[in-house]
Design a protein around this nucleic acid. Structure first.
Length: 208
DNA sequence: CCCTGATTCGC
DNA sequence: GCGAATCAGG
C-alpha cells in the first residue's frame, strides 16, 4: 500500500529535507524508506542537494529515435550533444542558496553529520503507547561513534517557526507537532532539542 | 561492507 | 502517484 503523503508528512519531509538530513534518515524519522523519501522529494520538485554520484551515462537503450526532433521545435534552447565520456558533472549547486561549504561542513555545519551523531526523534512522552513512536535506543552498537556528539554552532538556517517534534504516531488522528518556538537554527524547541540531539546509530526498522 | 542519492518502471 | 529495485559513487 502506498504511503499516505498528508500535508503533515509532506511538511515534515520538506522540513527535514531542508535541514540537510539524508534521505535514509528522513525516511527513518518518517517511517518510510529512503527510496520513498527521494521519490517523493523528486515529485515535490524539491531536491537540490549534493549528490554523491553523477549518474549520467547509463546503459539506457537510447534508440536512434532519440536523436530526432532536435531541430524541430527547440531552436536554441536544447542542444546537448552529450559529453564524450566521463564528464565531471559540475554539480549544479543551489542556484542562489547560501549553501554551506562542503569542506567545513564536515566539521561543524549541518546538524546531521550522518553516520555519527544525528538528530533523531526520540520517543516523547507518548512512548508508552508502544507504536512506532520515534525512539532513541541503541546508543552505540558499534564503535563508529568515536567522535563526540556536538551540534556546535548550527548554520543559521531556521527552517520553520515552530518546533517540529512529532507527537503521536504519524498517520493517526492525534498526531501533531510540538509547535513551540524552536531554537535559532534548529527545528526543535529548547526542550525537544535536548531529546532530539542524541547519539544513535539506528538502522531502518520501522514499525509502520 | 557501510553509506549516499538518482533513476527506472511495475504497480 | 508511489516506491522497490536497481544503479552508481564515496
Amino acid at each position: 500500500m502506498a504511503m499516505e503523503w498528508t500535508e503533515e508528512t509532506i511538511a515534515r519531509l520538506r522540513d527535514l529535507w531542508q535541514q540537510g538530513l539524508s534521505t535514509a534518515e528522513i525516511g527513518r524519522q518518517l517511517s518510510v524508506t529512503k527510496n520513498a523519501v527521494v521519490g517523493k522529494a523528486h515529485r515535490l520538485g524539491l531536491k537540490p542537494r549534493p549528490s554523491p554520484i553523477r549518474r549520467a551515462a547509463k546503459v539506457v537503450p537510447v534508440p536512434a529515435a532519440a536523436a530526432v526532433e532536435t531541430t524541430a521545435s527547440s531552436a536554441a534552447t536544447e542542444s546537448t550533444p552529450a559529453p564524450p565520456k566521463s564528464e565531471v558533472t559540475a554539480a549544479p549547486v543551489a542556484t542562489a542558496t547560501p549553501v554551506p561549504e562542503k569542506a567545513p561542513a564536515k566539521a561543524q555545519a549541518a546538524p546531521a553529520p550522518a553516520q555519527q551523531a544525528k538528530p533523531v526523534a526520540a520517543a516523547p512522552a507518548v512512548a508508552e503507547d508502544g507504536p512506532p513512536a520515534p525512539r532513541a535506543t541503541r546508543a552505540q552498537p558499534r564503535a563508529t561513534a568515536k567522535s563526540a556528539l556536538r551540534p556546535v554552532s548550527e548554520p543559521r538556517r531556521r527552517s520553520s517557526q515552530s518546533c517540529c517534534w512529532p507527537l503521536g504516531d504519524p498517520g493517526t488522528p492525534g498526531f501533531h507537532f510540538c509547535g513551540a518556538t524552536p531554537l535559532p537554527g534548529k527545528p526543535y524547541c529548547a526542550e525537544h532539542a535536548q531529546l532530539a540531539y542524541v547519539k544513535l546509530r539506528d538502522r531502518r526498522d520501522n514499525v509502520a
